[in-house]
Amino acid sequence: MKALEAVEKQEEIPPTEHPMDDVLRMDRIPHIWCPGCGIGLAVTAFVNALEKMQVDLDKVCVVSGIGCTGRVAGYIKTDSFHTTHGRALPFATGLKLGNPDLKIVVFSGDGDIVSIGGNHFIHAARRNIDILVICVNNFIYAMTGGQVAPTTPRSAYTTTSPFGNFETPSNIPQLAESAGAVYVARWTSLHMRRLTQSIIEGFQKPGFSMVEVISPCAMYYSRINKLGLGIDMMKFYHDNSVIKHGEPTENLDIGFQSQIIVGKFVDRERPTFSELYKGWKKEVKTVKRES
């Protein structure tokens, strides 16, 4: 009867105010993520960043797509939108252009942003829309039960690569950089402090910023590949991640259980879409007046 007693004891603990009450929808906790999942850590980092920056939460919008990470929008107590698979970025683009005062954060997974939403990702980066993208990369489609993702490292097993993955994985920072993102960083869910810092920087930077968060999927990716529990993955990140700021993005490929290079890779200036649009409007108005 041990387990039961524990349950009873838990019930007796009086509810206390949680420090994240203002930023998280506490009425929706418990969340759906499995034990050992890294998405919660990414959310924590994001929440910490919001609190550190002291931003007006009313002006922040979180947009998510579909998938495990897609559920983030549902837990953050700002205006939040849970949209269709891969289309978080265009939805966010519309939000931003509809009301330029908003600060938009797209919080979604690797499958959502790089696979089905790859095109929107490229073009939002090219336009340099003022959005922060937090992409949680767990190397797999977890919500649907562990299928191969474009980020799955070579020779890793998944349910749709039952004989080992043979495709070359996507290098998300490089994709972002080559499409025109102005801020690109990558951390694992172990690097909480640095991740928080990166989120702050990306949030405050005008233009398209992208922060990739390498995160364990203890339920599918680790289990199929026999990598142990979430904690084992964390240990692995601890031993195998190397911080190299400013590393050329082409060196950022991730092999199966190989070294992971983390850091801030791109921080540059490009005119944002809104600036260009304003300039264009002015020009048109002058031309119209003249004619």
Binding site: I122, H123, R126, R127, N128, S170, N171, Q174, L175, E177, S178, A179, G180, T249, E250, R270, P271, F273, L276, Y277, G279, W280, E283, V284, V287, K288
Partner: peptide
């Protein structure tokens, strides 16, 4: 220049191809 011409920055396709 027309009232309707490009306001966006172009895509660098060779770079996108190479980096992928």
């Amino acid at each position: 220049f027309s009232s309707y011409c490009s306001i966006e920055q172009p895509l660098n396709l060779p770079h996108l191809a190479r980096s992928n």
